[in-house]
């Protein structure tokens, strides 16, 4: 276990963390403001990945692919909100869970019809491939650094929008008292649509960034969605600050656990124990962490104010 490996895995953890944050931010906003449990958030992540890969292939420009993919996911999100989710705001969580579960089946199958069931590989343009020399002998893929940069930039932008602009003020007001906001003459339905589209675009962004490193296939959204739930539960539902902290914690714990738990167990107990328990424990680690956090702080680390 050398220092370079630790540094590399820490960066990997950071990269997974910002990816989880992009998804968690949208989900937690939608929940905090509209009180909607949206399981189909993972489907939007998948749609983003597919659209970007498709547009990159047809236009030949990566930047154009990203832009069109982002815009496409935004449109899909707004359509889903207008057609299906609007009627769900007043329903209980059970109905929301089931209806959005139905949407997941629908989207996964739709994608399978359009692009087939097997994974497609989305590539990177030449200027994003290659490695960067960091401190010492650590060489890290450029694209993963770009993901970290984009994720952190979005986090700052999101903080700015929510706490410093008029739209952000409306969002916060809508979260704490929607009847009052409506009474003050704000079109709350339009606000909901904007917020949902916003969240969808963030999920799409995560998806299109993830495309070139993970495989792009139907059902890809659900694998990461459940990790995002863990993030939100740890961070506190409805809180963007919590989503950010939770995402980084989960990203780090998951990545470092997978990398170092097996050798650590082998060294401390025995190689046999490491082989047997290492992978199993590593894949359960974030859920155990969630249980531990809930045992001490049932509302999560950063409970949102108001509720």
């Amino acid at each position: 276990m050398n220092l370079v490996l630790v540094a590399e895995q820490t960066l990997n953890g950071l990269q997974l963390g910002v990816m989880l944050f992009l998804l968690a931010a949208g989900l937690t906003l939608v929940f905090g403001i509209m009180n909607l449990v949206n399981l189909a958030h993972g489907a939007l992540y998948m749609v983003g990945a597919y659209l970007a890969a498709y547009f990159y292939q047809t236009t030949g420009s990566f930047a154009l692919g990203v832009l069109l993919g982002l815009a496409g996911t935004l449109v899909v999100g707004i359509v889903v909100e207008l057609v299906a989710l609007r009627t769900l705001y007043e329903r209980d969580h059970l109905d929301q869970v089931l209806a959005t579960f139905g949407l997941i089946l629908f989207f996964n199958e739709l994608i399978a019809i359009l692009w087939g069931r097997s994974a497609i590989y989305s590539t990177l343009p030449p200027y994003l491939t290659g490695h960067v020399e960091l401190i010492g002998s650590l060489r890290y893929p450029l694209y993963r650094l770009v993901i970290i940069g984009v994720g952190l930039a979005v986090a700052v932008l999101l903080w700015f929008v929510v706490s410093r602009t008029r739209l952000g003020m409306l969002i916060r007001a809508g979260a704490s008292n929607r009847a009052m906001v409506a009474a003050l003459g704000i079109n709350i339905r339009r606000l909901y649509t904007i917020v949902f589209g916003f969240g969808a675009a963030l999920a799409g962004l995560a998806g299109l960034l993830a495309g070139p490193i993970f495989s792009v296939q139907p059902g890809m959204g659900e694998l990461i969605l459940i990790q995002v739930f863990v993030v939100i539960v740890i961070g506190g539902i409805g809180s963007i600050r919590g989503a950010f902290a939770g995402a980084l914690i989960v990203g780090m714990v998951d990545t470092l656990g997978r990398a170092f738990l097996k050798p650590a167990l082998s060294a401390i107990i025995s190689p046999a124990a490491g082989d047997a328990a290492g992978p199993a424990l590593a894949s359960m680690l974030i859920y155990l962490l969630m249980a531990a956090v809930l045992a001490f702080r049932p509302e999560g680390l950063f409970p949102s104010r108001g509720s």
Binding site: A84, T87, L88, D95, L98, A99, F101, G102, L103, I104, L105, F106, F107, N108, E109, L110, I113
Partner: peptide, 13 residues
Amino acid sequence: QLYLGVILVLVVL
């Protein structure tokens, strides 16, 4: 599954 998904949403709604 596409049709099952639609039926599911309709039943819930």
